[in-house]
């Protein structure tokens, strides 16, 4: 059974208006403060919190400096060659996707950064990447360089010891779509078939 609210007395109504007025004044005060704190002059460019510059050894020889990518959107993802399960599938998926993009008249470079630089040197990557699209470049570097780029992309990775004294890696499994300024657009959705991922890429080209 709903209970009827007790009738409001004129005194209560006056008190209610008073509280409402106080709240309004408070909101105006806060808004004023926010306006006062806004930066003056031209707005700064938006800073991307995911991604950042890198200079790494390329599976195609030499050093790849991300500065040379300026003006072109690109894809970045992380893995390692001793990954049996999902890394080769992702690389193969991307190879197919880039083939489709080429057929549609588009192009994008993809960069596969190893999280296991101790075992994946440039020669190992050169061999390995030969099995996939030419548009995908493998990148490696020193442990410090890899840690730095992984941090800037907010990549999680952890060594998991295996019974034989060997190790494998747990890591973030995501393909980062970056715009022509190196800003993070979003993760490429490969799970939903190529159509969606293709449209995601074409939207930034």
């Amino acid at each position: 059974m709903p209970i009827d609210p007790p009738p409001v007395t004129p005194a209560q109504r006056r008190a209610g208006y008073g509280i409402l007025a106080a709240v309004l004044v408070g909101i105006l005060g806060i808004a004023g403060g926010v306006v006062a704190m806004l930066p003056r002059g031209p707005a700064k460019p938006a800073m991307s919190v995911v991604g950042g510059p890198f200079r790494l050894q390329s599976s195609k020889g030499g050093i790849l400096d991300s500065a040379t990518l300026a003006g072109r959107p690109f894809l970045v993802f992380f893995g390692f060659t001793r990954c049996p399960n999902v890394c080769p599938t992702t690389l193969a998926d991307l190879s197919n996707l880039i083939d489709d993009l080429h057929k549609a008249g588009g192009d994008i470079g993809a960069y596969y950064i190893t999280l296991d630089p101790e075992r994946d040197d440039a020669a190992v990557l050169r061999d390995y990447m030969g099995s996939f699209s030419d548009s995908i470049t493998g990148l490696t570097g020193t442990r410090e360089e890899i840690d730095r780029v992984a941090r800037s992309y907010r990549v999680f990775s952890k060594k998991v010891p295996l019974p034989g004294g060997d190790y494998t890696l747990e890591h973030t499994l995501m393909v980062y779509l970056m715009d022509r300024n190196g800003g993070f657009v979003g993760p490429l959705d490969l799970a939903a078939g190529h159509g969606l991922a293709l449209r995601q890429i074409q939207a930034v080209l």
Partner: peptide, 19 residues
């Protein structure tokens, strides 16, 4: 050389592996 049995699970976007 040898064969190991592993589990793989996804924790958000992180791939987890364990013997």
């Amino acid at each position: 050389d040898h064969v190991e049995i592993h589990s793989m699970t996804m924790d958000g976007t992180v791939m987890k592996m364990a013997p």
